[in-house]
């Protein structure tokens, strides 16, 4: 079942074209989004998060067209988003921060307290729920950011570099959370850490130079690599092999 559909997407910043005629379909499950720096991962995330308006193309989120204001609002109610660099109000407690976003996501007021506690518990911050954001470590802030993203039980969850700043134990826990969320949610995870993709993602998308150069299962990406490709792990070798192939293939 396709719940995110991108057709003929064009995005540019001034004269620099980031995407031109990009197609992408995502269904329920955890989707890894890989690519080198500057490939357009964050731009794609921002388009899907509805904060960046594309120049052209048809984008449907959970069946809603984002160029229709009423449909856009419906889509946003079911959206969770963690940007690569997210800000926060330092004097807010973790609970206040997540509560504020639950309100912004137009959750029914009666459901907010329970949903907030549940989201904070899922990211392992319940004991720090009443601490001010300014007193949290980098990893804890990231988890608070994930908590606000999932507080509304989104049907589409967009996480841009969610594991940055997490220690190994937290990353393992986070992958488990991703797998749990992916059972009934479209989760798109942009990351540089390919081992996260192997561990948690059901499918992988690889973008480079504004193009979607690979989409498939993690095992298929692994299989694309050979012993002669650079990389310390099978998926890294698959990653570099796909990139090399895309860059040498005629456009």
């Amino acid at each position: 079942m396709t719940t995110v559909s991108v057709d003929g997407l064009r995005v540019s910043y001034g004269k620099r074209v980031v995407f031109d005629d990009l197609d992408l379909d995502l269904g329920v499950g955890v989707h890894g989004l890989l690519g080198p720096n500057g490939a357009g991962k964050t731009t794609l995330m921002r388009v899907l998060a509805t904060v960046l308006r594309p120049d052209r193309g048809d984008v449907r989120l959970l069946g809603h067209r984002i160029d229709d204001p009423a449909a856009l609002r419906q889509a946003r109610r079911q959206l969770g988003y963690l940007p690569q660099a997210f800000g926060f109000y330092p004097r807010f407690t973790v609970r206040e921060f997540v509560e504020y976003f639950a309100w912004l996501k137009e959750m029914p007021p009666g459901q907010i307290p329970l949903a907030v506690d549940r989201a904070i518990e899922r990211v392992g911050l319940l004991e720090r729920a009443d601490d001010r954001m300014k007193h949290l470590s980098g990893g804890m802030l990231r988890r608070a950011g994930i908590a606000q993203a999932i507080v509304n039980d989104p049907r589409l969850l967009l996480l841009d570099e969610p594991t940055a700043g997490l220690d190994p134990e937290q990353r393992v826990q986070f992958r488990a959370l991703l797998r749990e969320l992916g059972l009934d949610t479209v989760v798109l995870v942009s990351t540089h850490l390919v081992e996260d993709v192997v561990a948690a993602c059901t499918r992988v998308n690889l973008v480079d130079g504004g193009r979607l150069v690979f989409t498939g299962l993690p095992d298929e990406l692994i299989a694309a690599g050979g012993d002669g490709d650079s990389g310390d792990s099978p998926i890294e070798r698959g990653y570099t092999a796909v990139l090399r192939g895309a860059r040498t293939a005629p456009r």
């Binding site: 904060v51 946003r76 997210f86 800000g87 976003f101």
Partner: peptide, 22 residues
């Protein structure tokens, strides 16, 4: 100006609540 300084405006922009309410 705090939202911009705190780099939180993008996160807020992705939410459905009309901008005048926050």
């Amino acid at each position: 100006g705090r939202e911009r300084r705190r780099d939180i405006d993008e996160l807020i922009a992705s939410t459905p609540r009309p901008g005048w309410q926050p």
